[in-house]
Simulated scan of single mutants.
Amino acid sequence: MGQVALVGAGPGAADLLTLRALDRLQAADAVVYDRLVGPEILARLPAGCERYYVGKACGEHSVPQAEIGERLVALARAGKRVVRLKGGDPGVFGRMGEELAALGEAGIEAEIVPGITAASGAAAALGLPLTDRAHAQTLRFVTAHQAREDRLPDWSALARRDETLVFYMGLNRVATICEGLTGAGLPADWPVMLIAHATLPTQQTRVGTLDTLPALLEAAPMPSPCLIVVGSVVTLYRDAQKTTRHALVDEAPAS
């Protein structure tokens, strides 16, 4: 029986892989990887390593989750050292639980190798604190995609001024998010930021408010994947630009 490691590839930049993640990649016989794993990371794989792409993207055909589990099981039963490579951290909106269940039902043990999640990587790249004593004592990660399409977040529980919200996979639901939060009590001028391609040279940002962000996005579309950061910590972004040199990405000066 082979081995399976569920490995977090980090937010995008190859040099943000952990040492353990790199070790598992370089020892792999087969890698099953997602859309958010870039070519610089795949270049770390050994010659002859089998590669299986199972990426998911909104509006595009994707490999069903059950089929991914079946492939992991089949590769492990073939005696291979398997890496299931996921963008960010495998336990943060990465369906890790479903894949562990598939492996467990087949009697295959799995190792979990954590990775830097997109929110942490993006915030570091921008010099943006996700928590701050004067702004936010709580940080909450929220998925914009529910298991059921008709299920919406509890906006009243999210509409707090003393915390930072980071929505994952929310690019196509910006208007719904902004309307939900303002409808639950956050002010229309509450700060919000969009971050695309976190930690990569192609990283982009948009800074606005809950009432202006949908129009900003319509006028200047952003690529996917995209994070939505909501909270007064966003006001610290410009100050961070003035005082901090960021090692992860070089952005053009703010106009």
Rank of each mutant, 00 (worst) to 15 (best):
residue 1 M to W: 11
residue 3 Q to F: 12
residue 4 V to I: 15
residue 7 V to I: 14
residue 9 A to H: 14
residue 10 G to H: 15
residue 12 G to Y: 00
residue 14 A to E: 03
residue 19 L to D: 02
residue 21 A to L: 05
residue 24 R to H: 08
residue 24 R to C: 12
residue 24 R to P: 06
residue 24 R to W: 12
residue 25 L to K: 04
residue 26 Q to F: 03
residue 27 A to Y: 10
residue 27 A to Q: 13
residue 28 A to C: 04
residue 29 D to N: 07
residue 29 D to R: 08
residue 31 V to F: 03
residue 33 Y to R: 14
residue 34 D to H: 00
residue 38 G to M: 05
residue 38 G to H: 01
residue 43 A to T: 03
residue 45 L to H: 07
residue 45 L to R: 00
residue 47 A to S: 11
residue 47 A to H: 15
residue 48 G to H: 12
residue 49 C to V: 14
residue 49 C to W: 14
residue 50 E to G: 10
residue 51 R to K: 11
residue 56 K to E: 06
residue 60 E to N: 07
residue 60 E to R: 04
residue 60 E to F: 13
residue 61 H to A: 09
residue 61 H to P: 09
residue 62 S to G: 07
residue 62 S to V: 00
residue 64 P to H: 02
residue 64 P to T: 04
residue 65 Q to R: 13
residue 66 A to F: 03
residue 69 G to V: 14
residue 69 G to C: 05
residue 69 G to Y: 07
residue 71 R to G: 10
residue 72 L to H: 05
residue 73 V to C: 05
residue 76 A to E: 02
residue 78 A to P: 02
residue 83 V to M: 00
residue 85 L to H: 14
residue 86 K to T: 01
residue 89 D to P: 02
residue 89 D to Q: 04
residue 92 V to R: 06
residue 92 V to N: 04
residue 94 G to L: 02
residue 96 M to S: 12
residue 100 L to N: 02
residue 100 L to R: 09
residue 103 L to N: 04
residue 105 E to P: 01
residue 108 I to Q: 07
residue 108 I to F: 00
residue 108 I to S: 08
residue 109 E to G: 09
residue 111 E to H: 06
residue 112 I to Q: 05
residue 112 I to R: 04
residue 118 A to E: 06
residue 119 A to M: 03
residue 120 S to R: 01
residue 121 G to V: 04
residue 124 A to K: 08
residue 124 A to L: 14
residue 126 L to N: 02
residue 126 L to F: 05
residue 131 T to F: 06
residue 134 A to R: 15
residue 135 H to N: 14
residue 136 A to C: 08
residue 137 Q to P: 01
residue 140 R to M: 09
residue 142 V to Y: 06
residue 143 T to C: 11
residue 144 A to L: 11
residue 145 H to S: 06
residue 145 H to G: 04
residue 146 Q to G: 06
residue 148 R to F: 04
residue 149 E to I: 07
residue 149 E to Y: 12
residue 155 W to D: 05
residue 157 A to W: 13
residue 162 D to V: 08
residue 162 D to M: 12
residue 162 D to C: 09
residue 164 T to G: 10
residue 164 T to Q: 07
residue 167 F to L: 10
residue 168 Y to N: 03
residue 171 L to V: 12
residue 171 L to H: 01
residue 171 L to E: 00
residue 172 N to D: 13
residue 177 I to K: 05
residue 182 T to C: 05
residue 183 G to V: 10
residue 183 G to M: 07
residue 185 G to V: 03
residue 187 P to R: 06
residue 188 A to S: 07
residue 189 D to C: 01
residue 197 H to Q: 15
residue 197 H to K: 05
residue 198 A to K: 01
residue 198 A to P: 01
residue 198 A to C: 02
residue 200 L to P: 03
residue 202 T to R: 09
residue 208 G to K: 09
residue 211 D to C: 06
residue 211 D to S: 04
residue 212 T to W: 08
residue 215 A to Y: 10
residue 216 L to F: 07
residue 217 L to N: 12
residue 217 L to H: 10
residue 218 E to K: 08
residue 221 P to E: 02
residue 223 P to H: 13
residue 225 P to S: 09
residue 227 L to R: 11
residue 229 V to K: 03
residue 230 V to M: 10
residue 230 V to K: 13
residue 233 V to D: 09
residue 238 R to P: 02
residue 238 R to L: 00
residue 241 Q to D: 07
residue 242 K to N: 11
residue 247 A to T: 10
residue 248 L to E: 05
residue 253 P to E: 02
